[in-house]
Amino acid sequence: MNIEALMTKQGMRDFTDEQRQTFTNDAVQVRQIAQIIQARLAHTEIEGDRPGAAGRRARKVSRKLNRVARLLEKAAAETEAVNAVYVREVLELPDRRAKAIEAREQRRDRRQERKALARSAAGTAITKSLTKTVHTLNGTEPVGNPQVSPVQPVPQYVNPQPFQFPGATAAAAQPVPNISDIFRDQEAM
């Protein structure tokens, strides 16, 4: 195998395809062998076997072969993953880094533009405020905010007929009744 050819995108793709195909074919063959062995051992009785012992023995052997087949299928999947990781982490990495650097530069430029715009806006506001202050102190410009209207005085409400409630003083002079007097009156009812 040529290592230089393997380190290219197509070379790695061919290698992983070949390995994946080999592992997948081997897994299929091992599963078929497991089924054949299980069927054969299930019908082969050894002297002294109890009922069903041959079937249990056949399943034990078959289980190990099925595990081998599963591991071969996992190996095929991992081989496919090798290609994906190689492409992403080795072949595409320089392009991703260049794009990240470019995006970082664009963000920095936009940030600088926003800062410059904010500085110019702040400078304009300060200049406007200082100009207004100078004009106000010299008496050339009216004081106050042009957007706010002058405050109108709020009229005070005056009651045209002051009224005293009758009996307010009489109720205040009357003593508060005792609670036992009230309940004694109700018990009598």
Results as ranks from 00 to 15, higher is better:
residue 6 L to Q: 01
residue 8 T to N: 02
residue 9 K to T: 15
residue 10 Q to E: 07
residue 11 G to K: 00
residue 12 M to T: 11
residue 14 D to T: 08
residue 24 T to D: 04
residue 24 T to M: 02
residue 27 A to Y: 03
residue 29 Q to N: 06
residue 29 Q to L: 11
residue 30 V to P: 00
residue 30 V to L: 02
residue 31 R to D: 04
residue 31 R to L: 14
residue 41 L to M: 07
residue 49 D to N: 03
residue 49 D to F: 09
residue 50 R to A: 14
residue 52 G to T: 04
residue 55 G to Q: 13
residue 55 G to F: 14
residue 56 R to H: 03
residue 59 R to F: 04
residue 59 R to S: 09
residue 59 R to Y: 04
residue 60 K to F: 09
residue 61 V to P: 00
residue 64 K to W: 11
residue 64 K to Y: 05
residue 66 N to H: 15
residue 67 R to M: 00
residue 73 E to W: 00
residue 74 K to E: 10
residue 74 K to N: 15
residue 76 A to G: 02
residue 78 E to L: 07
residue 82 V to L: 06
residue 83 N to Q: 08
residue 83 N to F: 14
residue 84 A to G: 03
residue 85 V to I: 14
residue 86 Y to W: 11
residue 86 Y to P: 01
residue 87 V to K: 02
residue 88 R to I: 05
residue 90 V to K: 09
residue 92 E to A: 11
residue 92 E to W: 02
residue 93 L to W: 05
residue 96 R to W: 01
residue 97 R to W: 07
residue 97 R to Q: 12
residue 97 R to E: 04
residue 99 K to M: 09
residue 103 A to C: 01
residue 103 A to S: 12
residue 104 R to K: 13
residue 105 E to H: 02
residue 107 R to A: 12
residue 107 R to N: 11
residue 107 R to C: 03
residue 108 R to P: 01
residue 110 R to S: 15
residue 111 R to M: 09
residue 113 E to L: 06
residue 114 R to C: 05
residue 115 K to D: 06
residue 117 L to G: 10
residue 121 A to K: 03
residue 122 A to K: 12
residue 123 G to F: 00
residue 124 T to P: 10
residue 124 T to S: 07
residue 128 K to P: 00
residue 131 T to N: 10
residue 132 K to F: 09
residue 134 V to Y: 05
residue 135 H to I: 04
residue 135 H to W: 06
residue 136 T to L: 13
residue 138 N to D: 10
residue 143 V to D: 05
residue 143 V to H: 00
residue 143 V to I: 06
residue 144 G to W: 05
residue 145 N to E: 12
residue 145 N to Q: 12
residue 145 N to Y: 09
residue 147 Q to F: 05
residue 153 P to N: 06
residue 154 V to T: 08
residue 154 V to L: 15
residue 154 V to C: 03
residue 155 P to H: 10
residue 155 P to M: 06
residue 156 Q to A: 14
residue 157 Y to C: 09
residue 164 Q to A: 14
residue 165 F to P: 04
residue 166 P to C: 01
residue 168 A to H: 08
residue 168 A to W: 14
residue 170 A to M: 11
residue 170 A to N: 02
residue 171 A to K: 00
residue 171 A to D: 14
residue 176 V to P: 08
residue 178 N to W: 08
residue 179 I to G: 15
residue 179 I to Q: 12
residue 182 I to T: 06
residue 184 R to E: 15
residue 184 R to L: 13
residue 186 Q to C: 13
residue 189 M to Q: 13
